[in-house]
Design a binder for these strands. Structure first.
Length: 564
RNA sequence: GCCCCCGUAGCUCAAUAGGACAGAGCACCUGCCUUCUAAGCAGUCGGUUGCGAGUUCGAGUCUCGCCGGGGGCGCCA
């Protein structure tokens, strides 16, 4: 479907060219025409402030330019009126009959309504969550997953080839540390006096896991060399944590195409190859026994360590830093797997790492414009006035699972994507639970369920929308509903181009509200034979509305229930 | 000290590339269920967009300074 606003932009362009041809406007280069949605209904369905921007080049007063554009506007069956408006807007009002006919167009598109055809179909990777697999997820990672998965859905709708990936941090010190903590709780479960090491993982879940391993494997890990037991328990622990992360994420409808192991970057020699490339470009040096990336040579503030020195870290496989993996990973994404774009969803606490990854990409000869690192701000968890501090090391936090249990997966996911990513979120658990009944997500889902109920009632009465004449839809509430549905493709375009999923839930609330108002004013299923035609038309209308709501909910990863 | 993000109604947040009189939900108050789901509808109340300058025809949005909150500046992960 071509976006209405793109068609209108073309018409505005033609109007200006027509005016220039007749001499009503002087010649000048046409800037890109932006069509916007005005805030007030009186200002029409669409508007452009182009005359205000054109005033200088056209050497005319803005309002006069608006008048000229309106007077030279080419005829279109979609447009009823074009009105100049002070101080220099052109307001465009759609033709109601054309609007009504879009119901048939929407129904024809079916579940694909909202899909776009991009100017260029790109191969895009979205990498999200990627939380350390050493414990349960907290709400922050939930925000990551909700944003990433929704964004991936949006990019698919926008016509791109999207791959969803979870990067598993299964390399280096933390695996051993996690393993050492598990070894301790495991040994404790078998009656040994074995304290959890300094800086180890302390949570109750570590104790739980230790007990479970003791039950499952007996004392076999006490029989082998300690270092081996620690390593094996570490990997075992990561695998079982990953399985539970996956279960939690699936509850929220967050899914992945691939789980990518950090360790594989080192085992496959990928990192070694990338290091060689950097060395060939003279961007690697040795200092104090460590191997450094010469980021300063690329304009960064500081150089950064790629491989720690043996004096500091004894185990060879624990020497590569996070940056080392990040450098190999970005190479893998853009050069090996050849994604056109790689989108990373990171917590704001990693913002300091952004310049180094970008610098590394440049150093490897990759175009940094292909990389987007989307930072989302922290979620502050409160219970009333009290801030809930979270730390995986101390094991003190509210898990995402607990939150989902209390509030529900749909509500959690909806709340987490409703705020713009760069807005720090305040999440009051008391309020969230209290308000879960009145959460906007239920308002939207309720609209969908209501339509399902109407269609069920209609089916029972033997009424269908087949052959309905949608041009009978002339009630203001009907037309407003159709106009609202027509905004879905624009929302997809907006959210995809700006990588801002939060527009979707706001649109959903809007659309649901307009449906509820329609529902109050216009009865769909009527037993009066005189209403047969309007009933048919309205059944088409609500079918289209149901489809539009369902699509919007699906894009957000939220269920569209048939009943509530 | 330096760097990044944020500050909008009592609360949680929107505001599409700088556009028109800054909008929703929650909370509060007033009405509305004999007909398709009242998890609903209609309405009331609520603002010096943290403060002060600047750029612009036009600033919540851009620039500078200040105030407040969060985060980051390791051979941690």
């Amino acid at each position: 479907m071509t976006l209405v606003k793109n068609q209108l932009a073309d018409l505005v362009k033609q109007a200006i060219q027509n005016a220039q041809a007749t001499g009503a406007l002087p010649p000048f280069d046409l800037p890109e025409v932006f069509i916007e949605r005005p805030q007030k209904k009186e200002w029409g369905d669409f508007a452009t402030s182009l005359p205000l921007k054109l005033a200088r080049d056209a050497k005319r007063a803005p309002l006069q330019i608006a008048q000229v554009i309106a007077a030279h506007f080419p005829p279109s069956d979609a447009v009823a009126r074009v009105e100049p408006s002070a101080p220099g807007f052109v307001n465009i009002v759609l033709n109601d009959a054309w609007v009504a006919r879009q119901v048939d167009a929407i129904l024809a598109e079916g579940a694909r309504f909202g899909d776009l055809t991009p100017a260029r179909r790109e191969k895009i990777q979205v990498e999200y969550v990627s939380v350390n697999p050493t414990g349960p997820m907290h709400v922050g990672s939930g925000r990551n997953g909700a944003i990433g998965d929704t964004l991936a859905n949006i990019l698919v709708a926008a016509g791109h080839d999207v791959q969803r990936e979870f990067y598993i941090n299964d390399n280096g010190t933390q695996v051993r540390q996690f393993g050492a903590s598990l070894f301790a709780t495991y040994a404790q479960a078998l009656g040994k006096d074995e304290p959890v090491p300094e800086g180890g993982y302390q949570g109750a879940y570590v104790v739980e896991m230790g007990k479970q391993y003791a039950q499952q494997y007996g004392d076999q890990y006490l029989q082998m060399p300690r270092a081996q037991a620690v390593r094996e328990l570490g990997r075992l622990g990561i695998d079982s944590v990953l399985a539970s992360l996956r279960a939690t994420l699936e509850q929220m409808n967050v899914r992945f195409d691939r789980w990518f192991s950090e360790r594989s970057l080192h085992e496959s020699g990928q990192f070694a190859g990338v290091l060689k490339r950097l060395q060939d470009r003279g961007l690697v040096f040795e200092k104090d026994g460590a191997t450094w990336f010469a980021a300063q040579a690329l304009g960064e503030e500081k150089d950064a360590v790629l491989i720690r020195s043996p004096q500091v870290v004894a185990e060879p496989d624990e020497r590569p830093t996070y940056l080392a993996s990040d450098v190999a990973y970005v190479w893998d994404k853009l050069a090996v797997r050849q994604f056109d774009r790689a989108i990373y969803i990171w917590g704001a606490d990693h913002h300091g790492d952004v310049p180094r990854v970008i610098a590394a990409a440049r150093a490897l000869g990759l175009d940094p414009a292909r990389i987007t690192i989307l930072l989302y701000q922290f979620v502050t968890l409160r219970r009333g006035e009290q801030v809930v501090k979270m730390s995986k090391r101390t094991g003190e936090f509210v898990t995402l699972d607990e939150l989902i249990d209390e509030v529900g997966a749909d509500a959690v996911r909806f709340m987490l994507i409703t705020r713009a990513a760069d807005t720090p979120m305040d999440f009051d658990l008391d309020l969230a639970v209290k308000q879960s009944d009145e959460n906007p997500v239920y308002y939207v889902q309720y609209a969908h369920a209501r339509i399902a109920s109407i269609l069920k009632k209609a089916a029972e009465a033997g009424a269908t929308g087949d052959g309905g004449d949608v041009t009978r839809l002339t009630h203001p509430a009907e037309l407003e509903l159709i106009r609202a549905m027509l905004r879905l493709p624009e929302m997809v375009e907006l959210a995809a181009s700006k990588l801002e999923p939060h527009h979707l839930p706001h649109y959903a609330i809007d659309l649901a509200g307009i449906f509820h108002a329609f529902y109050k004013q216009c009865r769909v299923v009527s037993s009066d034979p005189a209403d047969a035609e309007i009933t048919r038309a309205r059944l088409k209308l609500v079918a289209a509305a149901k489809l539009t709501l369902a699509r919007t909910l699906n894009l957000m990863g939220v269920r569209a229930p048939e009943s509530m």
